[in-house]
Design a protein around this nucleic acid. Structure first.
Length: 212
DNA sequence: CTCCCGATAT
DNA sequence: ATATCAGGAG
């Protein structure tokens, strides 16, 4: 199947129709909490992050309190999400910067966010999109995999996929499309065993299984 | 490019 | 046993 511009438009239409209520699956009650949750979510399911933040946020819901907690104690609290030493060290450094440079607030620009330790392109895109309403497409493992399989945006790196997605999708739908693709990756277009048999995009997907 | 890393699904 | 999970730093 050749994925034409018309087919890409149809893919986007079906995604929008299938996942109208797509939103972040991470639980948070402030910009700082979302920042922490997204940093913790690297190579970890959002479900597990929610378990960890549920026992973290009641006591440590702002950068000053988390900074006072310290690296080693934070490591213990977030151990179950993996990559915990790097995440703890980065989060404490970021808390220090938030407290001493941004008056305890989360900065609103992509350029400022991406300078924070532990905050890369994907996390910064999530934050500006979800928190501050900036049109953005964060390319995580799901968006990367689904976009490549659909032929909606093929690329060898997340940044390349991000560029192509922005060309294939109208800007007003960027932030929503990011969530459509994640939901689709989680529920249907799974990494290991994609459920092509029950996928509404199968007719317009070049990677769909050809089964009965 | 490698390394970080525990929990879960297959 | 191994691949994968809302990646980022060195």
């Amino acid at each position: 199947m050749r994925v034409t511009k018309a087919i890409k438009a149809e893919q986007i239409r079906i995604l929008e129709e299938t996942y109208p209520d797509a939103k972040p699956a991470l639980t948070y009650n402030s910009p700082f909490e979302l920042l922490v949750a997204v940093v913790l979510s690297a190579q970890c399911t959002d479900e597990r992050v929610n378990i960890i933040t549920a026992r973290l946020f009641p006591t440590y819901s702002n950068p000053a309190d988390m900074l006072a907690l310290g690296v080693s104690k934070l490591e213990v609290l977030i151990r179950d999400c993996g990559l915990y030493r790097a995440k703890a060290a980065n989060l404490i450094k970021t808390c220090d910067i938030l407290v001493h440079t941004y008056h305890g607030e989360v900065p609103e620009s992509f350029d400022e966010l991406i300078k924070l330790p532990g905050v890369g392109r994907k996390t910064a895109n999530v934050l500006v999109s979800v928190l501050f309403g900036v049109p953005a497409i964060a390319v995580d493992t799901h968006v990367f995999r689904v976009s490549n399989r659909l032929g909606l945006a093929k690329g060898k790196t997340p940044e390349e996929v991000e560029e192509k997605l922005k060309k294939a999708i109208p800007m007003e739908k960027w932030s929503a499309a990011h969530h459509w693709l994640i939901w689709h990756g989680r529920k249907i277009c799974k990494a290991r065993k994609p459920l092509c048999g029950e996928c509404p995009l199968a007719p317009v997907c070049p990677s769909a299984d050809k089964e009965a």
